[in-house]
Amino acid sequence: MINKGWRALIPYLYLAPALSLALIFSLMSMGISMWTSFHHFDAFAGSAGYAGWENYRRALFAADSYCWLALRHTAYYVVLCAVGVLLTALPLALLCQKVRWGQALFRTLYFLPSITPGVVLALVFYHLFGVWGNLLDQPRTAMPALALMGVWAGAGYNMVLFLAGLTEIPQHLYDAARVDGANAWQQFWHITLPMLRNTLVFVVVMTIIGAFQVFTSVYIMTSGGPERSTEVIAYTIFLNAFAVAGQMGYASAVAWLLFVVVAVFVAIQMRVFRSRKVYDE
């Protein structure tokens, strides 16, 4: 029943503040970002003229742009994080389920990094990585070290997500399987994993989206070094937008490329794993 007259305005009034803010700071912002990417722009001095495709061309094809390099390194980080999450959070959730005492305590302890500011964690790990063999000094170990920290930080959060998914699996499936003679591994492979499908997809997709935007650890710990091995896209964007003169347009172009990459990645994921999520309406 749609109301007539001024009463029809009521829902819009309720919506207006939140929706307008949300739209301004996301959709409208995207429009501005698009505009900026086609101009030479400085954070202070403003626009320096129309640039056409220059910024995109430079990002994609110029030898000194390091955009591809940053994308490669970011993708490396993303893969390490996704694999790491599956190898830590899922087994942890399975273990946590089996534990008879202290589930709540473990949930708390494992969850600590999720509620600690990333800056704090980065400052601590900056030294820990030094103590544990100067991992941040070698190009081969620097990025894996950052990924290790990322996985460590997300372990608790993802474990809780998996736990929630695990509790939804009906026990009778396991009982039936045991009656049929299935061992633990077979139960895991044929019951647990399929039933966890939605959760798995969700966790992996969220991890990937978050990992593509890694910034704080790089900013605090390595500034892109050693030898550019930890230079990631978000750092390139930040550097060019705010620290270098006149390259905000270029940074916007790089940001759009990032958006495209993330969108493609996620779309592939969702297609391949055909998550059965249903959005109401």
Binding site: D64, G224, G225, P226, E227, R228, L239, A243, V244, A245, Q247
Partner: peptide, 19 residues
């Protein structure tokens, strides 16, 4: 001139050369 940007280009090369 443009120290941050030139450092961003040149410093990793010097790092590699030394390391």
């Amino acid at each position: 001139t443009e120290i941050i940007a030139t450092d961003h280009q040149a410093n990793p090369v010097f790092e590699t050369l030394l390391l």
